Simulated assay, not measured.
Amino acid sequence: MTLSDNDIRAVRARAQLLTAPAADVLTVVRSIAAIQAQSTPAARLAIRARSRGLTAADADASRAVTRTWLMRKTLHLVPMADLRWLNRLFGPRNAQAGQGRRKQLGLTDELCERALEKLQVLLPGKALTRQEILDGLAADGITLDSKSQAPAHLLAYAANRGLLCRGRDDGTEPTYVLLDEWATEDHDPAEPHTELAHRYLTAYGVATAEDFSAWSGLPLGLCRNAFAALDLVPAGMGFALPETDLSAPPCPPRLLGAFDTYLLGYRDRGLLLDPAEAKRVNSGGGMIAPTVLVDGRIAATWHTKRTAKQTKVVVEPFATLPRSAITGLESEVDDYGRFLGETAVLVS
């Protein structure tokens, strides 16, 4: 089917719930397959942009979703029911890929195995912070420099081995729990790569196997085979599931957080972001700035300035924004403030 660039953006935005917000955290996360979550505040904002009526506390309190290291070896928020099979899919691959870096940090295979044995003693029935885990390991003669990257890589390795996952945050500190105690469900698809490809296309609307590979971090050959196993229809520059409605309304202005999945889901981001402005969004080091979406395209970045009385949401547009976009963003900023329990105003 022939689709214009505007059509593709509209289909993608609706698939991402940016034109059809959900009512609960689980529906948001399940609908968009996974939320990148190495930044907890950013993950909260991804939920806000795709829901209505929820608060940051609602996002933090949900036991229907949880975080672990999955796609691209990065922390992602996924439905609890998907945690085990996704861990089986990505865990061994991630653990193998991280071996070289672990050795550089002094995390030998022998030390890691000792640490995993100790974690099975420390964690039952508990949710411990990183420092509490380091203290427990040190008491057994396993000492890691808390200021180095070694603790993070050890915890990621333990997660990839299927031992633990992230629990609720303890104030501003993340906690870690035994996966077997935290995950009470286990969906077990017969063809996990095909299942993931289906979830990906459900969440991203129109895409290619190359996009799927970039998002998942899986080898392109596996991704092409997964696409080939699905009944797909050509759509514009990519493919879509047969059930995808390829007519969608334009996306209203949206305030997206850092690392937003709408931008991270494709290898070629040119349809969503003018390449000339790419460095304003991705300045290097893997950082993706908070962005403003206008008609499905990234039209600005934004940041906040907080005072005792209010939060200023400062928008830095790539070009002059139309009045209709500013009106929509005023509504978005009001909702941003409501979500966080702050008084927020737009500055553009």
Rank of each mutant, 00 (worst) to 15 (best):
F239H: 14
L222A: 14
P249K: 12
S216A: 08
R254I: 14
L178I: 05
G265D: 05
G236P: 03
G217E: 10
L271I: 15
G265W: 03
H187L: 13
A203H: 04
T194W: 01
V177C: 03
P253S: 14
E243W: 09
F259L: 14
L196P: 03
G236H: 07
E185Y: 05
P192W: 01
S213A: 15
S213V: 09
L218A: 15
A214D: 06
L246V: 04
G217C: 11
F212L: 15
P192D: 01
D245C: 12
F259G: 12
T202C: 06
L256S: 13
L196W: 06
A190L: 09
W215T: 10
L196V: 07
D245Q: 15
P189Q: 06
P219L: 08
W182R: 05
Y204M: 04
R269P: 02
A235V: 00
G270Y: 07
P234L: 05
E185T: 10
D260F: 14
R199Q: 08
T194L: 02
R269H: 03
P242S: 14
C223Q: 04
L256M: 13
L232I: 12
T202W: 01
E191N: 12
H187D: 11
L271Y: 07
A240G: 11
F239L: 14
G205M: 01
P189D: 08
G238T: 03
E195T: 14
L178E: 05
A209T: 00
H198C: 08
R199F: 00
H193K: 07
P192K: 01
A207V: 02
P219M: 09
G238I: 01
E191L: 11
D180S: 13
G217R: 12
A214N: 08
T244Q: 02
